[in-house]
Design a protein around this nucleic acid. Structure first.
Length: 296
DNA sequence: AGTGGCTCCTGGCGGC
DNA sequence: TGCCGCCAGGAGCCAC
């Protein structure tokens, strides 16, 4: 699932190829890709030049000056520069001049597209939290966000209204690196642990970008290339496998409805209410561990 | 404030 | 081998 590092990888790959080209066509094969009509998408985008490719959290945007064409890939969205052999129709495609095409593929069809006038961008992104790789994301800022919150750290990290761009993979990997239990209440994190959490998040996302993303599911860059961060995962989808640091089997629980992976020894349940520990659902049955074959 | 449940959607899996 | 049913998961929504 494309999270901040995957979207940033796409942004960096697309920018040199699309900036400076004009949008000449929009073809929609699946009208559920946008709440806006095809006519409106066309009217707002065609004839405009790509000034830049932007990213906000997990959103990617073609900056067309007066209008941004904003794309969220959600679970399985892919932006590809060519149509893979034997692939079925994309949900949408864009044509540019000088000639170039961009195809939006999306098996599970959760992804969405919006053409947003520049004046409305602040409103469009109003609910988005801080960019974790921006100068605004300081330890002090993080402490302010954590203060008073009772929700588990895992749920806190996934909340796009606090910090933008973190999804299930990078949340689990960040908490492992910070030696913090996913069920720990956000508000109980002190200065020292907040520093660790901050540094772990920045480090994990930066490493993700440096490795061109995590191709554990369907993620590929616009040229179809996989990332390599999946080779560096410490906990995500490693249920039952030995912790790379201490050898303890990685555990899976469900936190706020999300599968959550952690090392029970490297991430001890300090400041985790025993009630919370009990109510977190353990990994469901055989599916997760049968012969160690399944990774969920 | 926080959570659980539901929705969207489909491929891939377990179970039989 | 084949079919059924479950399930993940980002985000928005509603109920509690």
């Amino acid at each position: 699932m494309p999270e901040l590092p995957e979207v940033e990888t796409i942004r960096r790959r697309l920018a040199p190829l699309l900036v400076g080209r004009d949008v000449t066509g929009v073809t929609v094969y699946d009208e559920t890709v946008s709440d806006q009509s095809v006519a409106e998408l066309r009217r707002l985008t065609t004839g405009r030049r790509v000034e830049a490719i932007q990213r906000r959290g997990k959103y990617l945007a073609l900056d067309l000056g007066d209008v941004w064409l904003v794309i969220h890939l959600r679970m399985t969205g892919q932006l590809l520069l060519s149509r893979p052999e034997g692939a079925r129709l994309p949900r949408m495609s864009l044509a540019f001049a000088p000639p170039r095409d961009l195809f939006f593929y999306d098996t599970r069809r959760f992804g969405r597209v919006w053409a947003v006038r520049q004046a409305r961008l602040p409103e469009f992104f109003a609910e988005m939290g801080v960019e974790p790789l921006s100068p605004e994301f300081t330890v002090a800022a993080l402490r302010g966000l954590l203060a008073g919150r009772r929700q588990p750290l895992k749920a806190f990290l996934l909340d796009q209204r606090r910090i933008a761009g973190v999804g299930n993979i990078y949340a689990d990997e960040t908490l492992f690196r910070a030696h913090l239990h996913p069920l720990r209440a956000a508000g109980t994190v002190g200065a020292r642990s907040a520093q660790h959490l901050h540094d772990a998040l920045v480090e994990t996302l930066t490493l993700g970008i440096a490795n061109a993303g995590t191709s554990v599911d369907t993620f590929v860059d616009p040229e179809g290339a996989s990332g390599s961060f999946q080779e560096m995962l410490n906990v995500y989808q490693r249920t039952g496998q030995p912790c790379r640091v201490c050898g303890t089997p990685i555990e899976r629980i469900v936190v706020s409805g999300r599968s959550t992976h952690f090392c029970p020894r490297c991430q001890p349940p300090r400041h985790v209410a025993s009630r919370a520990r009990r109510s977190s659902r353990p990994a469901t049955s055989a599916r997760s561990t049968v012969g160690g074959l399944r990774r969920r």
